[in-house]
Structures are given as structure tokens and as C-alpha cells.
């Protein structure tokens, strides 16, 4: 297991490099929230989820919903690393005619199952998937990554209520709680604390972790799968911009990409010297 964790950590580091390079090339997109979510995305795509890059529509796959759709670069680099499409495609992010849209689009990107980007809607879709899979008696699980700022959307709580009501224990929400949103600190813009207490009171199984500790992420995903009778929420404390020291904990880097001067420094932070 120790080796697996080290392998996943290395995967996440490589994907951080890919995120930085991709966003430097596109000069448009969301850096901070992609870097805060990538450890969890890595654990899902390279360890936890059953999926087949050679057959994106494989019936036996687990489903992934990036409810915080602006972290699309985190999803795209993982999909490319898995082999859903060539890594070179990442350099076309957000360009006219590219299959890598600004926010996830199931119509054009292999491996993407739903369209997200307008915040607050992904958990509803994930629960719909969970209900449908259960109805068919399938063992597939559904994972949704949400932002903490996103929890300000009322629809999230409608979905939280419904998932608990229907006992969707094949559903796991991962909350990337990086504590920052566009206008500043989540706690100051519109406080959503306590996230764990809120999900618990809605009837969810709640697991609180450090969202950058790979061993904790993997353990939480296993715990979530083992829990029956209620959906699970993994509330992950994260750092916006994690891995690049001068991006970390800065709301200003929500929708800003690394410029030419920042790129070499950012890559150095990630242990990438080429």
C-alpha cells in the first residue's frame, strides 16, 4: 500500500505539472481550484474508479462528475494521462474547435459523462446516476467533486436531501474545501461552515480529511464505499493553488493562469526542471 500511495503522489505531481503547462499555454482557465482538487482526482482515476480509457462508454465504469466544472484542467490532464485522448490535445484547451472546452462537455470529450460548469448542478446529476445504477442492480459507484464555494448554491442542498432520502450509498461527494472563491474567503463572502455538520445533519456519512494527504484520501474512499444506507461526503481541507508556492492560498489565482515569467518558477516548485 505504501508503494501505491507513493505512486499516486508521483502521479499527482506529474499532473500538477501538466495543469501548469496546459494553463500557461491556454492563458485562460482556473489554476487554483485545479491544483487543489488534483490529489483527489488522481486517487480516483489511478486507483479507486473502475473505468476503461479504451472504451469510455464501458457499461461497468464508475461515474465521475466534476461539479466544480471550472477545475476542468484537473480532469483533462487525468483523462489524457489515462489515455482517453493524446496529451498533445491539452495544448488546445479553450481554443476554438477544441474538444477541450472551458468547462466539461460530454458531447465532445471522451471520458466526460455530463456537462458541468454552472455551479451547483453536479450533485443532482450524480445522484440521478446513482439512482439509475441502483435501479438496474449495478455495483457501479458515482463520485462527484464539489467546491466549498459551490455549496452556496441552494440546489446542492436539494440534492443532499434527495440523496439521503433515497439512501444513495453508491454516491460519494468529495468537497474540495480550499476556503477561497472569486471574491475572497468563503467564510467572508458567504460562510458555509460547518460543511461536515451540514452534510451530517442532512443524513450523510461524513469523513473529514486533509485533501492533499494521499493515504487519507485513499482510506476515505474505501470507507465511503464500505458505508451502507447513506451517501458519503468526504470533506477535504485543501489549499488553493497547492504545489506552487506563490499561487497557494491566493483568491487572485482563481481564474488566472501562469504567465511566461511565472512558468519556470512554478515548474521548479513542482520538481520539474526541464
Amino acid at each position: 500500500m505504501k508503494e501505491k500511495i507513493a505512486e499516486l503522489e508521483e502521479k499527482a505531481r506529474r499532473l500538477r505539472v501538466a495543469i501548469v503547462k496546459t494553463l500557461h499555454k491556454s492563458q485562460s482557465g482556473h489554476t487554483g481550484g485545479s491544483l487543489s482538487a488534483i490529489d483527489m482526482v488522481s486517487a480516483l482515476y489511478f486507483h479507486k474508479m473502475r473505468h476503461n480509457p479504451q472504451e469510455p462508454a464501458w457499461d461497468g465504469r464508475d461515474r465521475f462528475v466534476l461539479s466544480k466544472g471550472h477545475a476542468a484542467p484537473a480532469l483533462y490532464v487525468a483523462l489524457a494521462e489515462c489515455g482517453y485522448f493524446p496529451s498533445e490535445d491539452l495544448m488546445m484547451l479553450r481554443r476554438l474547435g477544441s474538444h477541450l472546452q472551458g468547462h466539461p462537455d460530454s458531447k465532445v470529450t471522451p471520458g466526460v459523462d455530463v456537462c458541468t460548469g454552472s455551479l451547483g448542478q453536479g450533485l443532482s446529476m450524480a445522484n440521478g446516476m446513482a439512482l439509475g445504477l441502483k435501479l438496474d442492480g449495478k455495483p457501479n459507484r458515482v463520485y462527484a467533486v464539489l467546491g466549498d464555494g459551490e455549496l452556496q448554491e441552494g440546489q446542492i442542498w436539494e440534492a443532499a436531501m434527495a440523496a439521503a432520502h433515497y439512501k444513495s450509498d453508491n454516491l460519494c461527494a468529495l468537497i474540495d474545501a480550499n476556503r477561497l472563491q472569486i471574491d475572497g474567503e468563503v467564510a467572508k463572502v458567504m460562510n458555509v461552515a460547518s460543511i461536515a455538520d451540514k452534510f451530517r445533519s442532512f443524513g450523510w456519512n461524513v469523513i473529514e480529511i486533509d485533501g492533499h494527504d494521499m493515504a487519507q484520501i485513499v482510506r476515505a474512499l474505501d470507507e465511503a464505499e464500505a458505508h451502507k444506507g447513506a451517501p458519503s461526503a468526504i470533506v477535504a481541507a485543501t489549499v488553493k493553488g497547492k504545489g506552487v508556492s506563490f499561487f497557494e492560498n491566493k483568491a487572485a489565482y482563481h481564474g488566472v493562469t501562469p504567465n511566461d515569467q511565472e512558468l519556470p518558477e512554478a515548474l521548479k516548485c513542482l520538481g520539474c526542471f526541464d
Binding site: S124, L131, G132, E158, H165
Partner: peptide, 21 residues
Amino acid sequence: FNMGIAEANMVGTAAGLASVG
């Protein structure tokens, strides 16, 4: 599925159900 008085979530849930066939 009665989704209660929560239309926004009902629409998203339906989209999820459609996504799994």
C-alpha cells in the same frame, strides 16, 4: 421518484438518470 418541492434538483436528477440509460 418524488423529488419533493425542489424542481432544480429534479431536473439535474433526471439528467443523471438519462446519462445511465
